[in-house]
């Protein structure tokens, strides 16, 4: 772990100087980046910050399709010995009703991929971490299942696997005694594909690079805005909502 951190630090430093040099020689308008697959042997960088914008008014079924697509992609929720409180959820639908007006709406809630992630902050082993491109993950190889991160997460986005798991998806390793949550379909993102929920949403969820002002997500966010849940916590989430 410490070696990884050092590498990340050195890369940040190198990338920082590299960008400064590029900005001198290339006109600003030419600094276009496209959301495409990075070469498999290249490490992710913080030039990119992945994000999602969820328009709940256009999301069919109050987001149930998102939950189903996620389950199908990652195979979670198939526990047979766990009770309802123990069962895993990577994304769930939450219904909100305003007390006075009784106006209510439903939204899918998953890991919000915070810039300053409380889970990574409290994790005693370094298993919870934020990848350079903003995706918050659990390294299950070093997770000890203490669940401190679950306590720290304001979005209730994480769960612990309570029982032995079989027949996992090859791209979604899952096992007893480790904590898990939305990975923003990191295995697909690394191949230049969209997360499974985005593909299932019929255009209601936009996925892209928040650092690139020319990406679709940045353009829509600039024009129409997008709210964070619990914005008061100042976590600068990568997942934003419209219609809440």
């Amino acid at each position: 772990m410490s070696k990884n951190n050092i590498d990340a630090y050195r890369r940040k430093f190198l990338v920082g100087t590299g960008v400064a040099a590029a900005a001198v020689t290339v006109a600003p308008g030419l600094l276009l980046r496209q959301a495409q697959a990075k070469p498999a042997d290249e490490a992710v960088t913080d030039k990119v910050r992945w994000g999602m914008l969820i328009d709940i008014d256009n999301l069919p079924n109050g987001g149930q399709g998102v939950v189903d697509a996620c389950k199908k992609e990652h195979g979670w929720g198939n526990e047979t010995h766990s009770n309802d409180k123990q069962k895993t959820h990577w994304v769930r639908t939450v219904k909100v009703t305003e007390k006075l007006t009784k106006h209510s709406f439903q939204l899918p809630v998953m890991c919000q991929h915070c810039e300053t992630a409380p889970c990574a902050d409290v994790c005693p082993t370094g298993a919870s971490f934020k990848r350079a491109d903003g995706i918050v993950l659990v390294d299950k190889h070093i997770c000890i299942g203490c669940r401190y991160c679950m306590m720290a997460c304001p979005y209730k986005a994480r769960s612990l696997v309570h029982e032995a798991i079989y027949d996992q998806k090859p791209d979604s390793p899952r096992g007893k005694g480790t904590v898990e949550s939305c990975t923003m379909c990191v295995h697909r993102v690394d191949e230049g594909k969209q997360p499974a929920c985005v593909e299932s949403s019929g255009g209601a969820i936009v996925f892209g690079d928040l650092n690139d002002e020319n990406s679709e997500i940045s353009k829509v966010l600039k024009e129409k805005g997008g709210k964070q849940i619990r914005a008061d916590l100042g976590l600068n989430t990568g997942v934003r909502y419209q219609g809440i």
Partner: peptide, 22 residues
């Protein structure tokens, strides 16, 4: 390779666990 993949998103197939299984 597991550290490179999980933390840095490196997904080359040499030494990839998934490639061994496949």
């Amino acid at each position: 390779q597991r550290d490179e993949t999980v933390h840095n998103g490196i997904r080359t197939s040499k030494y990839s666990f998934k490639a061994c299984i496949n």
